[in-house]
């Protein structure tokens, strides 16, 4: 920080947090800088779209955009919730009780 000087321990932690927030998200295959924001999603939960393409392979990950929505559906990365469970797509995951098994039943959604 240029204009402000952290004085107590809590201020030091606030400054460190601000610094962390300014770091970019990095790919997992590269050596991340200390404190980098690593995308956790795919390591914890199975996300169709990130992890399999529409053919069940990995050649077309995240393609097309209309198929890469499962994470957005759970964690809401978008400015609005897409697919919108309240209004437009209330039944989008109705046939997908378990993403690992039923991901092929997820339909395309056009935001």
């Amino acid at each position: 920080m240029k204009n402000l000087k952290p004085i107590n321990q809590k201020a030091g932690r606030i400054e460190a947090q601000i610094r962390r927030e300014q770091l970019d998200v990095v790919g997992l295959e590269s050596q991340p800088p200390e404190g980098a924001n690593i995308p956790l999603g795919c390591s914890l939960v199975f996300f169709p779209g990130w992890e399999v393409d529409s053919d069940g392979g990995t050649a077309g990950l995240c393609q097309p955009v209309e198929r890469d929505l499962f994470d957005c559906h759970l964690a809401c990365f978008w400015p609005a919730h897409v697919p919108d469970q309240l209004n437009h797509s209330p039944d989008w995951t109705a046939k997908c009780a378990s993403a690992q098994k039923d991901w092929r039943k997820l339909d395309l959604v056009f935001p």
Partner: peptide, 8 residues
């Protein structure tokens, strides 16, 4: 938050 910063 109880942080203390000095202002320039």
């Amino acid at each position: 938050s109880a942080g203390i910063f000095q202002l320039d």
